[in-house]
Design a protein around this nucleic acid. Structure first.
Length: 981
RNA sequence: GCCCGGGUGGUGGAAUUGGUAGACACGUUGGACUUAAAAUCCAAUGGACUUUGGUCCGUGCGGGUUCAAGUCCCGCCCCGGGUACCA
């Protein structure tokens, strides 16, 4: 009798749910372990086999930590605010809350079937008011805070007011939007409203008119990380630059800490690298250039102040605020037309057109701080307004872009590099030696940079400066389905709601679209104002708001007074293992670090990084299958060379579609086969058509080189590469009469690895696999596919292997009639060795998150115990525990049958006893000059000198020694012997 | 272009940190059991020679270090990801 996975799995899933087996609590007697999955957005499509991959891995590890004696927090929830539900609402009028709840129910059902050890009592949903009320509370905290660069910490805004009152703005280095300067007296002379407005410049959440990524198609702005290649990440719609008043969070204040914090966490190097690039720290200097005939100065940022003597012109971004000021009359027309031209070009056009050099001369000149020479000031779109200061000093000898610009416009290229040839391009090498550079002559960049800054500082013309690419995070979305921002306006001035008024509930609206005047959907809500009648903010928060702190809420999900209790954060602490996709590198994973640092500064949590260890699970790709429909059978009127009557036109409507098997697509070597098959179809078509259209003259002329149009076919109709033609015919009405040009009586499909998606019909649904093979088999198989971090195509065939393993596992405990055959008593030495070896390797593999190799070792163990005909209870008990993380259902059942009352989750991981593995003899591989030649069995405790003697006298050795004496004999771990000749 | 990863049988992938390359599985082939199929079990399975005892070659390519290299070093090629006038 075979193992009946269906009953067993249902039984235990029910048991775990009813007994709340995986409930976690603050337990000071036990070490804690927090294992977290990135919570899903509940989309309408449900789960495919790719989704649970990470959940299975984290579940395995959670179960492992549990039986290692940890109190494990392993929660799950839903990131349930988001665009798709809203798009669906716009189309159907269905409230996003309704669809979201339906989708969640479906997700839950699917998740439950896989046998996860989640503590469902801690479930959270970001779209629940009981959750987003606290997200709003964090926003208020951000609004009421400022960042002090002197102590590198965010502080309550009151402390900034104190500083202003005592010593004005200049004694403090506060993160800010606009440069301002005032004394304590000036501050005190401001009205309350003036003071309030001034503070807005320093808050961690601030409102500003800024250039944003506007997506007209989606009707909302997008964050930088939501734009890929100039189009929206979701939907791929074009994105424009637009000036809008919107909320931003001052993430740039944390740039330095976000960067240095990466060194303290065990995250994949690739993610850290992406974040480092995104933050984009560069060290250099700002240099101020005076302008001939103007009072203003131009400030530039450069990483190479050492090349200052190579400056031969300056370039401002077309949007630079000084451009209009300094352009003289002769050049005004040209400059204005250039600005006009560049402003029309979208970000995307500019990106596509990098090599085209353009610019215009303003007619103004700057003054070199050291030489006093005149430097022409140009504008050009290769200088970006939003990086650095929006202006550069151009050094054509040391920067390729400056060189190209100079070359294009015939500007001088002064040489400041010893022995350099500048005819082909700039010399960017930092090891080059400087010349024609006064006090920097003969130096390399490494020395010269510091000296140049020093001299600039002496002149008051520059200062050391660190610059970041990271931009503040836009926080307004013109959307309905998101957290309302808890802000109201008195005139133009924003005020936050009092904490007591939270949650600010999402209002009902008649439509989920912007208003006629282009206001966001919330503007449609009735009475969208405070009790006093002040209008509320109509923007909502972006998708990443709720996910930036959810891991903290899991610790204390039902707390109604606070985000979480002190006791809970102190006990559970950081996430120990965080599993999720790498696509969130510059989004979620950066924002969650930002909010964690902020909440840490507020004294709410004792740590300032969210997760110690991060693993990115790879994507499971779909293997799409294709059929190839002969072009002339795709219906309609054909007037091509392919199909002709005398008039050149033939109706092919109603003729059966014909599909060409994959290898017949190529002419060789199957051309003859293909010809004869197509010939058959041709005569058949002719006779049908002649009957149908009696007046038809001539025959169909068919080309044999028709390769067929590749068409996606549902992967469930394909076994290996062979198409189930009957299932295919029943798929769609138009295929009912389909004919197939097969090879060896089989229709072979083509295939390609692609992302899993509904439209490609390559989605493999976990439910069907569970029905057929069981949840344990699915879990084992997903792990067995390969290392967790790797992208890999889904391969259903392999699931037979783990399915067989489960049957063999079951068969260790049962005879053919399913009778229990486990025996008490002392295990044999061989049995002990097998299980001890397995305990050792599985523990090692667990500790390095190598979940795929554990499956192999379980298989090896079961195979070896089967060979030994092991029925010993102690050995088999250990084995069941080892298997319980990957295959919990079958293990739980066997555990019960072994006579245990409690769930296997409450047992202990088997103890590895190395002394039980000691061997009395060992098989030594013997090599000569590194090449393995033979093996020899010898006692382990034999002395080295005796071993050498035996080996050298061995008849096999004579061949290699040829009578000579060996130079050296090398032992590796006393196990491998290499004889050096 | 720049910055990260990676290239191992027909396939997915092992190789505990320089020490018996190809574990484990899929697939394929042959066999057993069956009226038959499925299921199950057994055997073979990197390549080339071969006197059947073995021998040689093999981890993208070319060099190097070492008694010993998939692993370390140098120079290429290819694939995947990130990023892109970032001064």
């Amino acid at each position: 009798m075979a193992y009946k996975f269906f009953e067993v799995e249902q039984k235990w899933q029910k048991f775990w749910a009813e007994n709340k087996t995986f409930k976690s609590q603050i337990n000071p007697d036990k070490p804690k372990f927090y294992s977290l999955d990135m919570f899903p957005y509940p989309s309408g499509a449900g789960l495919h086999v790719g989704h649970p991959l990470g959940y299975i891995a984290s579940d395995i590890f959670s179960r492992y930590k549990r039986i290692q004696g940890h109190e494990v927090l392993h929660p799950m929830g839903y990131d349930s605010f988001g665009l798709p539900a809203e798009q669906y609402a716009i189309q159907t009028g269905q409230h996003p809350d309704v669809t979201t709840k339906e989708n969640i129910a479906r997700y839950r059902e699917q998740l439950d079937r896989i046998g996860f050890s989640f503590d469902w009592d801690r479930e959270i949903r970001t779209s629940d008011a009981s959750y987003y009320g606290f997200t709003q509370r964090i926003f208020i905290k951000l609004f009421n805070s400022w960042y002090d660069f002197d102590i590198c910490k965010a502080l309550p805004i009151e402390s900034l007011i104190n500083i202003f009152e005592v010593s004005g703005s200049n004694s403090v280095d506060a993160a800010h939007t606009e440069d301002v300067s005032f004394t304590a007296d000036e501050w005190k002379n401001m009205s309350d409203e003036e003071q309030y407005k001034m503070l807005l410049n320093f808050r961690m959440a601030y409102l500003s008119e800024s250039v944003v990524n506007w997506c007209p198609e989606l009707g909302t702005v997008l964050a930088n990380d939501e734009v890929k290649n100039g189009v929206s990440e979701r939907g791929g719609f074009p994105v424009e630059q637009k000036k809008m008043k919107q909320w931003s969070l001052r993430i740039t204040a944390y740039a330095e800490r976000l960067l240095s914090g990466l060194d303290s966490i065990d995250w994949p190097e690739s993610i850290k690298e992406i974040q480092r690039n995104w933050i984009g720290r560069s060290e250099g200097a700002t240099v101020n250039f005076k302008i001939n005939g103007h009072s203003e100065e131009i400030e530039v940022f450069t990483t190479r102040p050492d090349t200052i003597f190579g400056v031969s012109f300056m370039v401002l971004a077309p949007e630079h605020e000084l451009v209009k000021e300094i352009t003289n009359k002769q050049h005004l027309a040209e400059v204005e037309s250039y600005i006009e031209k560049t402003s029309k070009r979208s970000e995307r056009d500019r990106m596509a057109d990098v090599k085209h050099i353009s610019g215009a001369f303003t007619g103004a000149y700057a003054i070199h701080p050291f030489t006093g020479q005149d430097i022409p000031i140009w504008i050009g779109d290769y200088v970006l307004a939003h990086y650095g200061t929006g202006a550069i000093m151009a050094v054509p000898s040391g920067d390729q872009r400056d060189w190209s610009f100079a070359n294009h416009f015939g500007l001088p290229i002064p040489n400041i590099i010893e022995g350099a040839d500048l005819s082909q391009g700039a010399i960017e090498d930092k090891n080059a030696i400087l010349s024609h550079s006064e006090f920097l002559n003969g130096l390399k960049a490494s020395k010269a940079i510091g000296l140049a800054i020093h001299e600039l500082e002496k002149l008051g013309a520059g200062t050391r400066k660190i610059n970041f690419k990271l931009r503040d995070a836009g926080f307004s979305r013109q959307r309905y389905w998101g957290e309302p921002i808890p802000v109201y306006f008195k005139g133009d001035v924003p005020y936050v709601l009092d904490q007591k008024e939270l949650p600010l509930m999402l209002p009902e609206v008649d439509k989920y679209l912007p208003t006629k005047d282009g206001e966001p959907p919330l503007a449609r809500a009735k009475n969208w104002e405070t009790k006093e009648g002040f209008p509320l903010e109509t923007n909502t928060m972006p998708g990443w708001a709720g996910s930036s702190w959810y891991y903290l809420r899991y610790m204390d999900p039902t707390n109604t007074h606070a985000l979480f209790s002190k006791a809970a954060v102190n006990y559970w602490g950081q996430v120990d293992l965080y599993l999720g996709g790498a696509e969130h590198a510059t989004g979620h994973l950066l924002y969650v670090r930002f909010w964690t640092k902020f909440l840490h500064d507020m004294g709410l949590i004792p740590f300032d990084e969210p997760a110690k260890k991060l693993i990115n699970q790879g994507m499971i790709q779909g293997v799409s299958k294709f059929v190839y429909r002969l072009t002339w059978t795709s219906g309609g009127l054909f007037g091509s060379d392919v199909l002709k009557d005398d008039e050149g036109l033939l109706p092919t409507n109603g003729l059966p579609p014909v599909f060409l098997s994959h290898s017949l697509r190529s002419d060789n070597p199957n051309l003859e086969l293909k010809k004869s098959k197509i010939e058959k179809i041709r005569s058949k078509y002719n006779s049908i058509q002649k009957k149908k259209y009696p007046g038809l003259k001539g025959d169909l002329n068919l080309l044999f080189t028709d390769f067929g149009v590749p068409t996606h076919v549902d992967v469930s109709f394909v076994d290996g590469d062979v198409l189930d033609t009957e299932a295919f015919k029943n798929w769609r009405e138009e295929y009912k009469t389909a004919e197939f040009i097969s090879e060896n009586d089989q229709y072979i499909c083509g295939s390609e690895v692609e992302k899993m998606s509904k439209s490609k019909y390559n989605v493999v649904n976990p439910d069907e696999l569970i029905e057929r093979y069981g949840a344990d088999a699915l879990r084992l198989h997903e792990m067995f596919l390969g290392p967790i971090e790797m992208h890999k195509p889904w391969n259903t065939k392999g699931i037979d292997g783990v399915s067989r393993f489960l049957r063999r596992f079951w068969a260790l405990f049962h005879d053919e009639q399913d009778n229990w055959i486990v025996t008490n008593g002392k295990p044999s030495d061989a049995e002990v060795k097998v299980i001890q070896k397995t305990i050792q390797v599985i523990q090692d593999d667990m500790d390095r998150y190598s979940f795929n190799t554990i499956v192999s070792h379980l298989m090896i163990c079961v195979n070896e115990l089967t060979t030994l005909k092991c029925t010993n209870k102690d050995v088999l008990s250990d084995l069941v525990v080892l298997a319980s993380c990957h295959a919990p259902h079958i293990s739980e059942e066997l555990w019960k049958k072994l006579g245990n009352k409690e769930s296997i989750s409450f047992t202990k991981f088997p103890v590895f006893k190395p002394e039980l593995l000691l061997e009395s003899s060992h098989s030594y591989p013997v090599s000569f000059n590194g090449k393995m030649r033979f093996k020899i069995d010898l006692p382990v405790d034999m002395k080295a000198i005796e071993v050498e003697k035996i080996i050298l006298e061995h008849e096999q050795s004579q061949k290699w020694l040829e009578g000579k004496k060996p130079k050296k004999i090398i032992y590796v771990n006393k196990k491998i012997i290499n004889v050096v000749l």
